[in-house]
């Protein structure tokens, strides 16, 4: 059973292969993403994060989820030597960590519900469990220069995979009006991790590191990465090849 919804400004697709699945099971997962969006969307004036950013909510009244996200963001900031930071100009934008965290929670909920073989894809950040018809899940890394093409096809199970990057807009010239970002020659970095929460937060941080991002991923135990630069060159970590599908 497979369904796609447009939530949190992106398509979220669920596919559950286990025969016990019912439409109601998928509905519960989508409802969870809606509730996450209600709390953490900076685009919604009524969300908890918007109230905090307007200074309307005292710390004592933060929800448990909000406390968790702020703590995880702080931890990730330390883990990435400050490259990951949800605070900009005194305002919080936790989108970089909420997405992976929400997909991970949804994964845990499906597992708790007895499901073993499924995937959750939220805007290209993916959590896979088990397999499909006895085969590992096949995941393409999209060619950032040609959306209709994949540059790698991976075979994964019980992993998270996330891509952080910019959309290519036809020219590979640095933006002179963004002097703080001189390393835009990296187009995208895809990270495979033990789960989607880990893969997503480190993909975001590694992209912010520019060319050094892939070295950062190489140093992390249990993570692999595939980085594409503006010249269509890819650099990948030592253990990446074992996930590549050789058909």
């Amino acid at each position: 059973m497979k369904q796609t919804r447009l939530l949190m400004g992106m398509p979220i697709t669920l596919e559950v292969v286990d025969p016990i699945v019912s439409p109601d099971d998928l509905e519960k997962v989508f409802a969870y993403f809606v509730s996450v969006d209600e709390t953490f969307s900076t685009y919604k004036a009524t969300s908890e994060i918007s109230k905090i950013n307007r200074g309307e909510l005292p710390t004592a009244e933060y929800s448990e989820d909000m406390k968790a996200i702020l703590a995880l963001s702080e931890q990730t900031k330390k883990d990435t030597n400050g490259y990951f930071d949800i605070e900009h100009d005194g305002l919080y934008d936790p989108a970089g960590i909420v997405k992976g965290w929400a997909i991970q929670n949804a994964t845990d909920r499906l597992k708790a519900g007895g499901f073993r073989n499924f995937y959750i894809d939220a805007g290209g950040d993916i959590s896979v469990a088990g397999n499909k018809d006895g085969k590992l899940w096949r995941i393409g890394i999209r060619n950032p220069f040609n959306r209709s093409e994949n540059v790698k096809v991976l075979a994964l199970t019980d992993r998270g995979i996330a891509t952080s990057g910019t959309a290519i807009r036809g020219q590979h010239v640095y933006d002179p009006y963004n002097p703080n970002m001189p390393l835009l020659d990296i187009v995208s970095i895809t990270v495979i991790g033990p789960n989607i929460y880990e893969a997503d937060r480190f993909a975001t941080a590694a992209f912010a590191m520019g060319k050094r991002g892939i070295q950062f991923i190489e140093k992390l135990v249990g993570f692999e990465g595939y980085m594409i630069d503006a010249h269509a060159r890819a650099t990948f970590t030592s253990g990446f090849e074992r996930y590549v599908l050789h058909s």
């Binding site: 995941i139 093409e149 994949n150 540059v151 891509t163 892939i214 060159r233 890819a234 990948f236 970590t237």
Partner: peptide
């Protein structure tokens, strides 16, 4: 440990696609 290559299309069928 890092390896580099020029990207090239891999045309095998996929279930899901990751991308920015």
């Amino acid at each position: 440990q890092l390896t580099s290559e020029t990207i090239a299309a891999q045309s095998a069928n996929v279930d899901i696609v990751t991308g920015a």
